[in-house]
Design a protein around this nucleic acid. Structure first.
Length: 637
RNA sequence: GCCGAUGUAGCUCAGCCGGUAGAGCAACUGAUUCGUAAUCAGUAGGUCACCAGUUCGAUUCUGGUCAUCGGCUCCA
């Protein structure tokens, strides 16, 4: 009895050193073992059967906590790897981490796996779980580990060990049954603790995420503490599918992407175009309020200009070219060039700066076929683009103003977002000094504004570092919308200057920025965010006038006219159908207000609004409804 | 671009071992005139993605192309 362990309720119990965490818990509160996947010994995650050698504080990792689920899923991935190797002998394993909402494991096998194989694999996994194999941790020297995996013909594991930093002398392995994996851990105590799991999909994935490497087969799966949580999650996935903007785009008649027209090219239908128009109108006003000037450049510019800017060297693969009068033109993939030429059109004084050129600029980019995705990833899109030319000392306040603008815009739509700072990529232009200056400027602005962010090494644009703002779609996939990019290079290449207070020529700095990003992508995220039920101010149809019977049509017609007159986007729905049917149709179109017109309304010269969430507002005068709607729109609801 | 899957009516999907196709919803027509999520009946609608090949005969088998979906890489 020579060490003391302090438990979460501050109770202290003495043990012999080397007691396992599980034994300690058993003496404290035995029942915790049922739902504890691992522990933290003095805040360090560890297995339940790790020995405790000194006085320690012991915390529990609950199976239902985020950390606990991640450990559980990681353990399930090992079980899956074991099952796959047993069902498909010769399969090589590589890596298999827990991810948000599940896990995956990457394999190499001579035949492709299909979803039909899942039943077999799952069956074998259940067998492994039923056998309740303990997860046994072992520490091995590097050399011994390499030898072990070489013998087992696991060259990916060998490569992983060989690539560990030089000072790493020992690695840890985990065994369950006959399966051995290189792994940091911790893991659940034994396979029997797995109560609910499911394999979800199979996909190709490059070894170590590099497209020059071999493509492995990745199996995705998920797992939960119990069956009902798993069922809830699978249900959630089904619900998310119903929010998919591609599906809603068709159901709500917003847009199409037509094979005959070409992949990645969006055709906006009347309602989709109206939505787009409403967003763009709002944006123009917001930009004018913030000191931006609206400009517009041509769709094609001579190739020499793209050579000058560096796009031809660094972005050519993504560009389309065309020939006019024996001159080669590049179809613009970005809007900056024209903006540079506007700046250059006269001599600029320091008093003119900053200059903020705003353009709803339509660009074309040759995206690889495999990346196209509804409105989210297309080949022609319109950016709410601006280029700000300013003095270096104005950089900080300009970046802050943009971050503020982004925050305001996201607030209007009720979006939460994540921020990333992307630094210099490999294939880039400009000097180290400029890159450092630019990166520091962005970083400082983030810090000054107390915006929390993550650093994304090497993910900047070829001409400068950037701050990315990411939104999530219905399936939790993140999409970059707003971005701020700092650029010293283009002003240099275009020899931009301004006359400073000292009467000398100086070089301005340029910020590239978008707020919503690509209108198409933003619309996609927006549609999913609202599950198609757009706020009233953005709804292409704000209300629909519905008659109870044909005899109400004349009065209903005057109501509709009055609404249109008042600037409300109203539709007539006077079909000879039962009221319930028409309500249902309007409901499925997610129209905010259904105005029911029956005898009572004709009599009282009123309307009976019903909201799309089933609320009945009773019979109210038309003017009152108009005022209500106008107020809601005013508040951007 | 890479890996895998898929492509049948406007939509969602059936269609066995090769003998040129069906359902529900939507559409259209008629009846019904109805008070808050589906009235009834009838009609019409398909070059089975496209192009080759095998075959007496291909939606079905084989090859190619295109597109879509899920990922990877890339990106707004």
């Amino acid at each position: 009895m020579n060490i003391k362990i302090i438990f979460t309720d501050n109770k202290e119990i003495s043990f012999n050193d080397g007691v396992t965490a599980a034994k300690a818990l058993e003496s404290w509160k035995k029942e915790t073992l049922a739902y504890t996947v691992a522990v933290k010994i003095n805040n360090k995650p560890a297995d339940l059967n790790s020995p405790i050698e000194e006085d320690s504080k012991l915390d529990l990792i609950d199976i239902s906590s985020a950390e606990g689920l991640s450990i559980l899923r990681h353990s399930i991935s090992h079980v899956m790897a074991q099952a796959v190797q047993e069902v498909f002998p010769g399969t090589k394993v590589s890596i298999g981490p827990a991810i948000e909402n599940g896990y995956y494991y990457d394999f190499e096998y001579k035949e492709p796996f299909t979803v039909d194989d899942f039943t077999k694999i799952e069956k074998r996994m259940k067998k492994i779980i039923a056998a309740d194999h303990p997860f046994i941790r072992e520490e091995l020297s590097r050399a011994a580990a390499v030898k072990l995996f070489e013998e087992r013909n696991e060259n990916y594991k060998v490569e992983l060990i060989n690539d560990l930093p030089g000072d790493v002398q020992e690695v840890s392995l985990y065994k369950q049954g006959d399966y051995i994996d290189l792994c940091r851990g911790p893991h659940i105590p034994s396979t029997g603790m797995i109560k609910a799991f499911k394999l979800l999909s199979v996909a190709g994935a490059y070894w170590r995420g590099n497209e020059n490497n071999k493509m492995l087969q990745r199996i995705y799966g998920t797992g939960f503490a119990n069956e009902s949580e798993l069922a809830d999650y699978l249900n959630l996935l089904e619900e998310a599918k119903k929010r998919d903007h591609r599906r809603l785009g068709r159901e709500l008649d917003l847009f199409q992407i037509n094979e005959e027209a070409g992949p990645g090219l969006v055709i906006f239908h009347p309602k989709g175009m109206l939505l787009r128009y409403l967003i763009e109108e709002w944006e123009r006003k917001e930009h004018l309020k913030r000191g931006y000037d609206m400009v517009m450049g041509p769709q094609i510019l001579k190739v020499d200009l793209w050579k000058k800017s560096g796009h031809f060297d660094h972005y050519r693969d993504n560009m389309y070219f065309t020939e006019v009068d024996e001159q080669v033109y590049g179809i613009k993939p970005m809007n900056c060039l024209s903006h540079m030429l506007i700046y250059k059109s006269k001599i600029r004084s320091y008093r003119d700066l900053p200059l903020r050129y705003f353009e709803l600029g339509t660009v074309h980019r040759h995206e690889k076929t495999g990346v196209l995705h509804g409105l989210m990833r297309v080949r022609q899109f319109t950016q709410d683009d601006a280029h700000i030319l300013c003095m270096p000392e104005q950089l900080n306040s300009e970046i802050r103003a943009i971050a503020d603008f982004v925050n305001y815009a996201m607030g209007i739509f009720g979006f939460e977002y994540e921020v990333e700072l992307s630094t210099r990529p490999e294939n880039s232009i400009g000097s180290d000094d400029d890159w450092n200056l630019a990166t520091t400027a962005l970083e400082n602005a983030l810090k000054d504004n107390k915006i929390s962010y993550e650093v994304n090494e090497g993910d900047g644009a070829f001409y400068g570092p950037k701050i990315d703002f990411k939104l999530k779609d219905a399936l939790k996939r993140k999409w970059q919308c707003a971005t701020i990019q700092c650029d010293f290079t283009l002003p240099e290449r275009f020899d931009l200057s301004y006359i400073g207070a000292d009467g000398e020529k100086h070089r301005p700095v340029m910020l590239h920025r978008v707020i919503l990003g690509a209108i198409e992508r933003f619309m996609g995220v927006l549609i999913e965010h609202y599950a198609g039920a757009l706020p009233v101010w953005l709804s292409p149809t704000q209300c629909v006038v519905i008659t109870v019977t044909d005899k109400h049509i004349p009065y209903a017609g005057t109501v509709h006219d009055k609404l249109i007159e008042a600037g409300i986007r109203s539709e007539k729905y006077f079909d000879n159908e039962k009221l319930g049917y028409k309500i249902r149709q309007a409901q499925m179109q997610k129209i905010p207000y259904m105005l029911v017109i029956g005898d009572k309304e004709v009599e009282a010269e009123s309307v009976a609004p019903r909201t799309r969430d089933g609320q009945n507002l009773g019979s109210i005068p038309v003017d009152e409804f108009i005022a209500l709607l106008q107020e809601i729109c005013e508040k951007k609801q």
